[in-house]
Nucleic acid binder design. Structure first.
Lengths: 287, 287
DNA sequence: GGGCCGTCATACCGGGCGGGTATCGCACCA
DNA sequence: TGGTGCGATACCCGCCCGGTATGACGGCCC
């Protein structure tokens, strides 16, 4: 199976529509139909059910979509990491020193990251660290497709499956309320209570694909903006304990009694051969 | 990057020789040279250094070989699992019920496996389990390229990186000697002592590629044959505790004081969607 | 219910590229 | 200095990918 065929199939599977998939792929619809039909013939499996309003996946199609995405990510990772090897190793000793790409959520664990980067930079033989800050839920895919070499992730929010990891920090979660709110005098609240405070919806976090679930709360894009909403009495939010350092006036904090602990980890692909990743991890475990 | 290019590059990298790689791939040498040159151009990286006696890898080439193997395994897995989905789901409700492929080392952990299969078969909704027994070190690759859905592995011998797993059994290792050997009266021996017993070499285990390391001991292919050699006073062997059940007369057993514990685990790809795998794992954790 | 629309499949054509054979360039070696 | 072994180059052919035009078919609306 060629990656071209996989890309075509994934496009059709995701769009549920040959025409839109062809457009997204930058080709015409007939060659796409033909390629998918050929793939189905070679696999001996019907992947899609064609209807008069598009195409839906069969069971075999679901499997190929799932496994195929992982395979495509692996191929992209191979390509990206090879490119990075040559440009950082400086083919022919030309220039650019080796570096490692570390990705993390913007606005999360900044203290841990700062300590890690400082400590690592002091190590002998440390390579340059490119810090790439991204919206939540993007770190895992970046690690899988080679855009990053190592990531700071948060369990149970991020998908850490398939990665090697070291735990950096375990913390409780807190409910952040407008100062003076009735609940702010409580010693603790439950998750159920926090998610149904009259007039104070919790913000919605983006999904992996960047879309937002349905609901009443504001769409969370920038933590400062959401905290402003909380201060104005328009929302509440649940954050890990370390965020307390960034809070300013006008906010009240109540521990959550039954929320899962947030675990901050450093994660990397299990087959990583990068000396930079190894060094960062070694430094991280010593913190 | 197309999988064809990756396959070509991996072949050349492994053979270190364009001619032999072309033969292995079933094509002529000139198109292969051209394909690799084109890949290098597109990646903007020299992957191979051509010499008058073959080709050796550059640093970028090492990266691509490493990442590329993983990517090819992922693509193969996608293809195999899709094929298996359709043939087991019975396209059109034709026949073949769903099944799951479990792989394990021949001759290891047979007790655990028997208990697991019995317990799972008694579960409601259990699917058929194809048990595939292979030589040591083959289970991990099989899980990675989709030939198997779930595996019984042994730490620290097998490479479990990137898999989800549950521990089934932790055991000490034992030195197996001919009955009456001088060491057989000892309360325990060290690994260093065990690996340098005069006249009693330890057998050599095959590597992932099936080849054997250099050394004096017999090549281990069949455990019964090796135990026969031990009985005859021609070898010694280190085995986990559970192997004690299979020992017959003529053998003495001495605990190893400093050998790592052997951990038997059940492992599966972290993104597995198979109900059969989930059921097997659930059963295994209850044992 | 018949025309119309949307969607995917089929038919057909052209060009690019992958693969083959023949040959060259080159380094080592006897 | 010819021989040998290896990869690169030159050149040709045929397949397959991609494009345009058109067909088949189920819904939908008036």
């Amino acid at each position: 199976m060629e990656t071209r065929e996989l890309r075509y199939f994934v496009a059709v599977a995701e769009e549920g529509h040959f025409g839109r998939a062809a457009e997204r792929l930058g080709i015409a619809q007939p060659p796409l139909s033909r390629a998918i039909a050929q793939l189905e013939r070679r696999l001996g499996a019907d992947l899609l059910v064609r209807t008069h309003r598009g195409a839906t996946l069969t069971e075999a199609g679901e499997t190929l979509l799932h496994e195929g995405r992982a395979a495509l990510a692996a191929v992209e990772a191979a390509e990206r990491r090879t490119r990075r090897t040559v440009e950082t190793a400086g083919a022919g000793g030309s220039g650019g020193r080796p570096s490692v790409v570390l990705t993390a959520k913007a606005g999360a664990s900044s203290e841990v990251i700062a300590k890690l980067l400082d400590a690592y930079a002091a190590e002998p033989g440390a390579v340059e660290v490119d810090l790439v800050l991204c919206p939540p839920a993007q770190q895992s895919p970046m690690l899988r497709d080679g855009r990053a070499d190592v990531a700071i992730l948060h369990q149970p929010f991020d998908d850490v499956s398939g990665f090697d990891l070291e735990v950096l920090l375990v913390e409780e979660q807190l409910l952040i309320l407008p100062a003076g709110h009735a609940l702010s005098t409580r010693r603790s609240v439950t998750v159920a209570e926090a998610s149904s405070i009259p007039g104070l919806p919790l913000p919605r976090w983006p999904r992996v694909d960047g879309s937002y679930p349905e609901g009443p709360g504001p769409e969370l894009r920038d933590l400062t903006q959401v905290l402003q909403l909380v201060r104005l009495g328009r929302a509440a939010i649940v954050l890990p304990d370390s965020a307390r350092a960034n809070l300013r006036d006008g906010l009240a904090v109540v521990p959550l009694s039954d929320a899962p602990r947030v675990t901050t980890v450093i994660a990397w692909p299990p087959h990583s051969r990068s000396a930079g990743v190894a060094g960062l991890v070694r430094t991280a475990t010593r913190l």
